[in-house]
């Protein structure tokens, strides 16, 4: 039993004055503070949020839908289809006379969605998969990681194209395809990190104090992985967007009349020679902005969460 009188002497003799307020500063708050102090990352985050807000608010100002063809500009896109406030085509029209403003918004939405979904799959599947493989180690680890190696070694572009052709081009298929490969890298990163964490004393301490394996993984290991997972996931978003764009560029991505930034850029690039430069410029601007801001935010996260590596 913990008898108070026996321990009082120890306590009073060894009591330590504390100057710091009682509320603890968690590592997350510290990281948040460091992130806020990083100007490039913070600016990027604001720009990124602005883009997101634009994709939500923007459609309310659109006068044309994504598929409505403006017959008045058809045949004379170079002059009549240029960006203009009067016609309501703020970003101009595409080659067949559809409103580019609406299409860019939709393309940005799709691209962001693809990036976020791909990244989310990676976070959920990759983290659990990697943590389990790393924590249990041994044969299970070998088996699980060889499986990853095998999937990695298959040319995924080929598989993806095959999937899209066999099952038809659809959103679902695109997400399935991207989800299939996005978690592979994450699981490797997480497994490696788990291997190091596993040997840290606090994990041994958790085992020594009687924690069940499930608790050790989800209470002690995973929370300490989240930093690296967050960084990796942020950097994975642009990677997924690039992947989708590449697929769309090949003409296998999202199906018309839906579009994505990659598809828009592809079309814009084809018509560049006719002088309709806006058809390339607007989607490209959003594309580059998203990529850059994600990279900067990811970089900022890395510095904030892992200050030793700077």
């Amino acid at each position: 039993m913990l008898a108070d009188n026996r321990i009082k002497s120890v306590a009073s003799a060894e009591a330590i004055a504390s100057e710091v307020p009682a509320k603890g500063r968690s590592l997350w708050k510290d990281a948040g503070r460091r992130f806020m102090a990083n100007r490039a990352a913070l600016t990027s985050l604001i720009v990124l949020l602005a883009v997101v807000v634009f994709t939500i608010v923007g459609p309310f100002f659109a006068r044309w839908s994504i598929e409505k063809i403006d017959w008045s500009v058809v045949g004379n896109v170079i002059n009549a289809g240029a960006p203009s406030l009067e016609t309501g085509h703020y970003f101009g029209t595409d080659e067949v006379g559809r409103d580019l403003y609406s299409r860019v918004i939709q393309g940005t939405q799709i691209s962001l969605l693809v990036g976020l979904v791909g990244s989310a799959i990676a976070v959920i599947v990759g983290t659990i998969y990697g943590a389990i493989a790393g924590y249990f180690g041994g044969r299970l680890d070998s088996l699980m990681m060889r499986f990853v190696d095998i999937i990695y070694s298959i040319p995924y572009m080929f598989i993806l194209i095959l999937l899209l052709i066999v099952f038809g081009r659809s959103f679902i298929m695109l997400f399935v395809g991207i989800g299939l490969i996005s978690w592979l890298g994450m699981s490797r990163v997480v497994r490696g990190q788990t291997l190091t964490l596993k040997n840290r004393e606090f994990v041994e301490a958790a085992i020594a104090t009687g924690s069940k394996p499930r608790d050790v993984i989800f209470r002690h290991i995973v929370p300490n992985l989240l930093g690296i997972v967050a960084i990796y996931a942020t950097l994975l978003v642009p990677e997924m967007i690039l992947l989708e764009s590449f697929i769309s560029f090949l003409g296998l991505g999202v199906q018309e009349p839906n579009t994505s930034l990659g598809a828009l850029i592809s079309e814009g690039a084809q018509t560049m020679q006719y002088g309709t430069i806006w058809q390339l410029a607007f989607p490209l601007f959003f594309f580059i902005t998203i990529l850059f801001t994600f990279f900067f935010v990811g970089d900022g996260l890395r510095d904030a969460l892992d200050p030793k590596d700077r």
Partner: peptide, 29 residues
């Protein structure tokens, strides 16, 4: 049967508060 470790900081989970760390054995045992 319990254990005290050499490196005091390394043996404490950095994402948990002191209260959570000390309560952890009680939670499971």
């Amino acid at each position: 049967l319990q254990i005290i470790f050499q490196d005091p900081l390394a043996s404490l989970n950095p994402r948990m508060t002191v209260g959570e760390i000390i309560a952890d054995p009680l939670r499971t045992l």
